[in-house]
Every structure is written in structure tokens, then in C-alpha cells.
Design a binder for these strands. Structure first.
Lengths: 221, 221
DNA sequence: TAGCTTGTTATCCACTTGGACAACAACCGG
DNA sequence: CCGGTTGTTGTCCAAGTGGATAACAAGCTA
């Protein structure tokens, strides 16, 4: 009669919020692996360990589920990131923000780019997130300038530029496999140092821990 | 009895090569609109104006069709580009290569990035294409250096860097909509000029015509 | 013109998908 | 302990998918 600590008896219930969160996280995991268009209600259900009808109980439609998953990714990313950066000196913050992130993280983003033109809700969320990221990076650049460590004629424009470089480098690293993680960081750091007039090599020496994408567990290996 | 110039009578046949090409181009058009995973044999058939069984007559499977479509995009892109660049002076060639391309072109590429991790054949084609692009741009950079107009310690590395910048900027322009086409070009040209020690503004003044993506018709508007 | 090749059509099939729904069972307030 | 709320299941459905196949018809060659 002794049942295992992890109860499996039929009918065992979880609180609404708990289950919702579980479903969203599972969805996001599958999105990273199969893309927004590739996730299936049944796959999500299997991943969570429930019947696919239950997903419908929490989300009125597949679209709503996917939107919730992306929203979760965006929100939780910015929440942790902002907090993390505030505790660092400007150079470490800049290096952390620009450092290459893990694979799952970027797979979700690249998939979002690919899906956005067909999914207005996703495009809107993406644009919002992009603005938030630009704001955060702009603030970091301003801190660097204020500390007298570098210069920027237009911090917001430099923020957009560095974001573009980081994204493009991430594609070459994660998707094409043309460069490894060290080269990726070198490229981004190099542009940032030249653009902001920083001492060459200062960003790499900051020995950065990636500040973005903490919600995505490291890839399976 | 007079039939229109464009024959529509049942059973009218096209040559094998002609039809194949027609199908591949239609597929590519749909890929730009719906992504690699989103194209359906029936949609392709409708776009071409035939029955979906006919697609199977030319391509053994959906995967084979999609692979052929991507292969066509890659091949025809490089064929026209290489030719076009050889006729230009180094600065114009560099500017043309880096200039923002049309939307359809980049949608296909972004979709390929998103699909590559799940589709080995696509990943391989993408990597090959990336190498070819790197080689072409490297050669252009070398021509710039040889002409005494700029400097590069490592033309191949600079080629990878500029490719990354162009890709990242394209995402911000086409997907996020955060910048317009002029800003996009300014950002890429600016990095290129600084990286290669060119006279500032020389690339924009080259009044470049985009050298890439000629296979994709301009977006519908 | 006869006959073969092959481009083309029209159906059929097994399967998966998102969604709907009724029955069940755990929890909670009375 | 009772009754309603709600998390959960199992099952059904229509629509759409990729693929298979047989019949048809256009064009070529003999």
C-alpha cells in the first residue's frame, strides 16, 4: 500500500496557479526544441504528464498558450536581468549583457523572429521586449559614460547597434556554428569597445557571466 | 473555339524542367510567407495551379521539395551576386553587399535559422552558404585593402563580423521594425568603415544597390 | 496511325491536429 | 457529512496533412 513520495494516484490535484506555471514552462521548453509553430497541445500535455484536454482547461486555445509562454519568457527574463545588472559595476554589467547566452535562450528568440511576421501578437510582444532591452542596455551605456570609462554620442543608437551585433553573432554561433563561444564574445566585445572608446580587452577581462536568458535551463548535452 | 493565349485546356502539359522550376519557385514564395515548416503540399499545388498529387510526381517527399527550394535560393543568390560584384569597384561592391535587402529575402533566411537546428539537411546547406558568403565578402575586403582604401588585419574575421552585423541589423529592421532602411544601412556601413579604417560616409555615398537576394521578388505591398 | 512514355488528375488512406464535451473525483465551505 | 466548485480524465469529432495509386491524356517515336 506504501505509495512513493511523489504521489501518482489518479485524481491528485494541483493548485490552479501551480499547474498553469507548469504548463507554461513545459511549453517554453518545447518551443525551444520545436519552434512556436511546432508545439502541439498533445506534446505539451505529455511533457507535463496530463491529458491534452487539461491544457484546454487552462488555455482557451493553442494560440493563447503559445502567447502565454512567450510572455513568460520575456517577462521573467527582464525581471531577473534588470536586478542582476544593477548590482554590478558598469563594465561588468555591459560585458554581462553582451556575453553569449545559452542555446535554448536563443532558439526561442530566433523562432520568435521567424514567427513574428505571421503572428501579430508575437510581433507586438517582441517589439515591446526589444524596447525594454534597448532601454536596459542604454542605461548601462550611460553608466559607463557617467563613470568616465567611455564615450557615446547617442547611447540609444549605440544600444541598438550592439544589440544587432549580439544577435547576429548569436546566429553565427548557435545556428551556423561558424564561430565558437570565445570568438562570439570577442566579436561583440570588440565592436563595443571600439564604439564606446573603451580600453581594448576590458570587457573580456571583466570575466562576464551572461546576464540574459536565465529562465532557460542549460541545453541537455 | 478560340482559346485564350494562355492555354487552360485539361491535360495541357509542360516540360519536366519547366514545371519543376515553377514548383520550386512557388515553394520558395510560400516559404517566405509561411516558413519552412508551414508550407503544405496542397498550398504549393494550389499556388502552381495543379493538383497536389503532381507535386509528389516531381518530388518524392515534402522534405525533398523544401530542400530543393532552399537549395535554389542559395544557388541562384550566389550565382547572381558574385557576377554582379565583380563588375564594381571595391567600395561599391562592399556597399552593395552590405546594403539592406528586401523583405522576402530575409524572411527565408530567418526561417532557415529557426528550422536548421531541427533539420540537418537545412543546417548543412546553411553552413555551406555561410562559408560561400564569407568567402565572397572576404574577397571584397581584400580588394578594398589592395586598392589602398582601407586596412584589415584578418579579412576573414572582418567578413564574419560584418556578416553578423548585417544579419542582426536585418532582424531589427525586418522583424522588429525598430529601425528603418536608412538607419539599417547607416549602422552596417558605420561599423564597416570603422572596422576597415575607411573614410566615414564613403559607403553611403557609394549609393549602393543591394547585391543580395535578387531571386526574391520585392514584397507584395 | 499504333504504341510507349510520362505529365496530370482524381481519389483513397492512415494519421495527427485543435477543439468540444460529459463524466469523474478531489477539495472546500457550509 | 453534504453539495457545489473545479481540477482532471477519456472519448469523440471535423479538418487537414503527407503519401499511395489507378486511370487518363498529351506528346513522342517508330
Amino acid at each position: 500500500m506504501a505509495q512513493s513520495a511523489v504521489e501518482k494516484r489518479p485524481g491528485a490535484r494541483k493548485s490552479s496557479d501551480e499547474r498553469r506555471d507548469e504548463i507554461v514552462r513545459a511549453t517554453l521548453r518545447l518551443v525551444a526544441a520545436k519552434g512556436f509553430a511546432g508545439v502541439t497541445l498533445r506534446e505539451v500535455a505529455t511533457e507535463v504528464g496530463v491529458v491534452h484536454g487539461l491544457i484546454r482547461h487552462y488555455f482557451a486555445s493553442r494560440d493563447e498558450l503559445v502567447a502565454a509562454a512567450f510572455d513568460f519568457a520575456v517577462t521573467s527574463e527582464l525581471a531577473t536581468d534588470q536586478q542582476q545588472l544593477d548590482g554590478l559595476d558598469p563594465i561588468a554589467a555591459l560585458a554581462g549583457w553582451l556575453a553569449a547566452t545559452n542555446e535554448n535562450h536563443y532558439h526561442v528568440w530566433i523562432d520568435a523572429w521567424s514567427e513574428a511576421p505571421r503572428t501579430p501578437a508575437l510581433a507586438a510582444a517582441l517589439a515591446r521586449h526589444h524596447d525594454d532591452c534597448e532601454r536596459i542596455l542604454t542605461r548601462v551605456i550611460e553608466r559607463v559614460v557617467d563613470a568616465g570609462l567611455g564615450a557615446s554620442a547617442d547611447p540609444a543608437a549605440d544600444s541598438r547597434l550592439l544589440t544587432a551585433v549580439a544577435d547576429g553573432v548569436a546566429v553565427q554561433h548557435h545556428v551556423v556554428g561558424a564561430i565558437d563561444v570565445d570568438e562570439a564574445n570577442d566579436m561583440v566585445f570588440g565592436v563595443a569597445e571600439r564604439q564606446l572608446g573603451l580600453e581594448p580587452g576590458i570587457l573580456a577581462r571583466a570575466n562576464p557571466v551572461p546576464a540574459r536568458g536565465q529562465w532557460a535551463e542549460a541545453p541537455a548535452r
